[in-house]
């Protein structure tokens, strides 16, 4: 990621903090991150995409334990990373926290939580966003 460029993070705050996706009012399909138009309805969906807040509930579709991380994440390694099937339809990639790495399984139920994702060193901005944790 390019460092120090705050607008790039700032404009995604609704998505990263609150999982704001959008919905095609033609076919009801939900997207995250939001799309300019629906890839299914295309022209018909233009002007009919409405903001839609996802619940943050979902389950593990697949996962890995990252042992060799990029420098922004290496203090946290080993950490689980998963593709999560959200209940409203979209899938997203995120870290799983507050759980033993041995416990991560396909199908595990999750909910979103608010964490620090990365920062631009000791001097730069701090970027927050979603991670996921176990849901009973």
């Amino acid at each position: 990621m390019a460092e120090g460029a705050v607008p790039r993070f700032w404009r995604e705050i609704p998505q990263r903090y609150n999982l704001i996706g959008n919905k095609c009012n033609e076919c009801e399909k939900v997207f995250f991150p939001p799309r300019e138009s629906c890839p299914e309805c295309r022209r018909k969906s233009m002007g009919k995409m409405k903001d839609f807040k996802l619940s943050g509930e979902g389950e593990v579709l697949t996962y890995t334990i990252i042992y060799e991380a990029s420098e922004k994440f290496e203090g946290q390694a080993p950490y689980p990373l998963a593709i999560i099937q959200l209940k409203e339809g979209p899938k997203i990639t995120a870290q799983i926290v507050d759980c033993d790495i041995e416990d991560v399984k396909i199908g595990m139920k999750l909910k979103s939580t608010f964490r620090k994702i990365q920062d631009d060193g000791y001097v730069g901005a701090i970027y927050y966003g979603y991670k996921f944790k176990k849901r009973n």
Partner: peptide, 16 residues
């Protein structure tokens, strides 16, 4: 706190 937690994340969790 873990590396990804600070006063902002704790405050957000409590407020939510």
């Amino acid at each position: 706190p873990s590396l990804d937690q600070d006063v902002a994340t704790i405050s957000v969790e409590s407020a939510r």
